[in-house]
């Protein structure tokens, strides 16, 4: 893949995952701890959890934070593979 195609591929993936309503990075920070605690307990995702998963698909910085917090708190999020 050329550099041009890589950038266009990346943009197309972001556009594909875009939702009409999205939480922003501050809202992500408000709910990420609740989200990880629910994942750790194997609880069903709430609407807020689904919004968080959508957010990290379009926000690489929050995805990086989610992975780091999970690592710091020893929460196994491998069950989210393919969803984030």
């Amino acid at each position: 893949m050329t550099a041009d195609e890589r950038h266009l591929d990346q943009l197309a993936r972001l556009v594909k995952e875009t939702a009409d309503e999205e939480i922003d990075c501050d809202q992500f920070l408000e709910i990420v701890a609740i989200f990880l605690n629910r994942v750790a307990q194997g609880l069903d995702p709430t609407a807020a959890c689904r919004a968080l998963k959508q957010h990290v698909r379009v926000c690489p910085e929050c995805k990086e934070e989610l992975l780091a917090i999970a690592q710091a708190e020893s929460v196994d999020i491998s069950c989210l593979q393919g969803e984030i």
Binding site: A33, L36, N37, E73
Partner: peptide, 10 residues
Amino acid sequence: EARFTTWAMA
């Protein structure tokens, strides 16, 4: 709703 330490770590 969240564990305090997870919230602080975030």
